[in-house]
């Protein structure tokens, strides 16, 4: 018969092992998302400093030419670990347009005014009026625009759960009369091309 003290020791050992295992596992998971690992300073990054940051690969979504699906293009952005700045870097890549012959789902001339990722997981993205004024209108076009933005942010930033798109600092009911914009939108991964 083991003595009570031995039993206690065994229980404690097992408990410790479980905790250690959990700790390692959660650490491992965060490695997949360097956004949260990199201990970059929280503010005041110059361009030069940004260039010295480790970079990470993100997937930015564009509209495919031969059907209405979204297709990802890999881009490199500075992995500075600040959601607002990484969100901006991702959207800047989207605004730069496709480098692989896909269609840009944002009207030409659209500017990104502000990006802010709230603690509750909502990303607020404010575009210039061009997003509306130069939009071709129609459900398919609206869908491509909205979900290229929403999917690009949610797919690359663990801290973004949904996205509220603003135009010229204001909430809008819709972009051009179809999909509602005045509530945060969840990603629609079903729109992404399978091949």
């Amino acid at each position: 018969m083991p003595r009570p003290k031995t039993v206690l020791l065994a229980v404690l050992t097992v408990l410790l092992a479980v905790l250690a295992f959990r700790f390692i596992r959660s650490g491992g998971r965060e490695d997949i998302r360097p956004a949260e690992d990199v201990g970059a300073p929280a503010s005041g990054l110059s361009e030069a400093e940004a260039r010295n940051l480790p970079r990470r690969t993100v997937t930015v979504f564009f509209a495919r030419e031969n059907d209405d699906r979204l297709v990802g293009e890999k881009r490199e952005i500075p992995a500075d670990g600040v959601p607002d700045r990484e969100a901006r870097a991702i959207l800047d890549e989207l605004l730069r347009g496709s480098l692989e012959g896909n269609l840009s789902p944002l009207p030409p001339g659209t500017k990104l005014e502000q990006v802010f990722v709230a603690k509750n997981g909502t990303a607020y993205v404010d575009f210039s009026r061009d997003l509306v004024a130069r939009h071709p209108s129609g459900t398919s076009a609206e869908t491509a625009t909205i979900f290229a933005v929403v999917n690009s942010l949610t797919a690359n930033l663990a801290s973004v759960k949904n996205v509220l798109i603003l135009v010229d600092g204001e909430e809008r009911e819709t972009l051009s009369g179809h999909l509602r914009l005045n509530r945060p939108l969840l990603p629609n991964m079903g729109l992404i091309a399978k091949n």
Binding site: A63, D68, L103, S104, P105, P136, T139, S140, A141, A144
Partner: peptide, 16 residues
């Protein structure tokens, strides 16, 4: 509605 796309050759009918 009638649909509109960024793609000139997008065609077809759909119901939502």
């Amino acid at each position: 509605h009638t649909n509109g796309s960024f793609r000139k050759n997008a065609q077809g009918a759909e119901t939502f």
